[in-house]
Each structure stands twice: as structure tokens, then as C-alpha cells.
């Protein structure tokens, strides 16, 4: 399969939870989460892979996620960076196939994210995926986040279910139309028949209230 990193892709389907491999083929970590940075023009752009328990545990979802995250932090109460995940800048990514390959060896690779007050405002994709979506048709969830070839958020796919629930069976250009087995395809498409893609311009994200509004 070809490199996806330099063409449009779906953040959950193609990147999240994939294996990260270093230049020499050694395994580094998983893509536990993605860092999203706010740009001046109101756009949101993915800038780094996040890894480690502080990135993974909150993604277990809802109350469970926050509870295990608290327990994790409490196990090292004296450590200031206990809640900060490791960060791998997108500049280090060579290609994205069935795994993410980096341009350097893994030795001493992982450095924790800098604290809150430095640089642009940063968010996590995992937080965005857990937000409730208020759409004209009712309450929805985010199923996937589509990025363009420069990793800017282009659109959200909203519907019922959990992120990634469409398993790659969604109908649109660039996806194989007849991914089998036919029965699984029919069931997944029927379950997500109301799912739709919303351009990022029509979306307002309230990071404080954990809510997404679709105009």
C-alpha cells in the first residue's frame, strides 16, 4: 500500500492506533492520540503524534477514561509531567502505510509535550472525538475527522456510534466501493445510513463545554 501521509486521509481510520516504527524497523509505540493546534485563521491542524499512558487512558472513554487517568497520575504524584503524553512531531514522520514510519532511530526519541503555556493553543483529537455534536437533525457523535494533505481538518463525519465504527465501509470517492464481505458492508452501511460529512467551516467547537455545534 502507498503512503497516505502526503494525501488526504481519515484521522481515525488511517492513523489513530497504528504502530509507530523507527528508521531501522524497530517498534516505538502506538499512535495513542493526535495533537491538534489552532492556527490564526481559525483552522485546526494536526501537528504531532501523541503516545504513552497519558494519551491512551483518556481515550478509554467517558468516566472510565477519566478515572483510570486519575489513578495513573496518582501513582506518580510527585512527577510534574505525569499527565503529559510523549510527542512525536509530524516532521519526523517519513510515511504512513499500515504503520507510521519515522525518519530517525528510536533511541531517546520520545520527549514529553511542553506544558500548557508555550506555543499555540493545542488540543487532542481524542477529546474532540468524545464530544457531543449538536446538529440540526439532533444529537450526534463524531465518527471520523478528515484531514487534507497538509493535515488541516477539512471535515467531520458525524452520525451514531463510536469513532471508527464505519470500519472503512463508507461510500465515497477514494474508498473501494465494494469492500467485502457484502453482508458486513450492508449491515455497517445500514447502521450508519444517516452519517454525513460536515465541512469544517460549518462547525463550531467549544473546547470548554466539550460540545460541537453544526450550523
Amino acid at each position: 500500500m502507498g503512503d497516505r501521509f502526503h494525501e488526504p486521509y481519515d484521522a481515525v481510520l488511517h492513523l489513530l492506533d497504528r504502530q509507530v516504527i523507527d528508521r531501522d524497523g524497530l517498534l516505538v509505540c502506538k499512535v495513542d492520540d493526535l495533537e491538534l493546534a489552532e492556527t490564526g485563521e481559525g483552522a485546526l491542524v494536526a501537528t504531532a503524534l501523541l503516545a504513552g499512558s497519558p494519551a491512551l487512558l483518556p481515550r478509554l472513554g467517558g468516566r472510565l477514561g477519566s478515572v483510570v487517568r486519575e489513578y495513573w497520575a496518582r501513582m506518580g504524584d510527585e512527577q510534574a509531567d505525569r499527565r503529559l503524553p510523549y510527542r512525536i512531531d509530524f516532521a519526523l514522520v517519513a510515511e504512513l502505510t499500515s504503520a507510521v514510519t519515522l525518519t530517525r532511530p528510536r533511541h531517546g526519541l520520545l520527549v514529553r509535550t511542553p506544558g500548557e503555556d508555550e506555543g499555540p493553543v493545542r488540543h487532542r483529537l481524542g477529546d474532540l472525538l468524545q464530544m457531543e455534536v449538536e446538529a440540526p437533525e439532533g444529537k450526534r457523535r463524531i465518527l471520523d475527522v478528515r484531514l487534507d494533505e497538509r493535515h488541516r481538518v477539512r471535515s467531520l463525519v458525524i452520525g451514531h456510534g463510536r469513532p471508527g465504527a464505519m470500519l472503512g465501509y463508507d461510500e465515497r470517492e477514494g474508498r473501494p466501493a465494494n469492500q467485502g464481505p457484502a453482508l458486513v458492508r450492508a449491515i455497517v452501511r445500514a447502521l450508519h445510513r444517516h452519517a454525513r460529512e460536515v465541512p469544517f467551516g460549518q462547525v463550531r467547537i467549544d473546547w470548554e463545554q466539550h460540545r460541537v455545534r453544526v450550523a
Binding site: 492506533d17 504502530q19 502506538k30 481515550r59 478509554l60 477514561g65 463510536r162 469513532p163 470500519l167
Partner: peptide, 16 residues
Amino acid sequence: SGRATFDLVRERLGPA
């Protein structure tokens, strides 16, 4: 693809 079973389990079913 060079991916073994539990790589795929997590990739397709998510972390939870």
C-alpha cells in the same frame, strides 16, 4: 502488511 492480530484488533475496534 507486517501487522499481527492484536495490532489490527486495536486499529479496527479502538482502544476501549
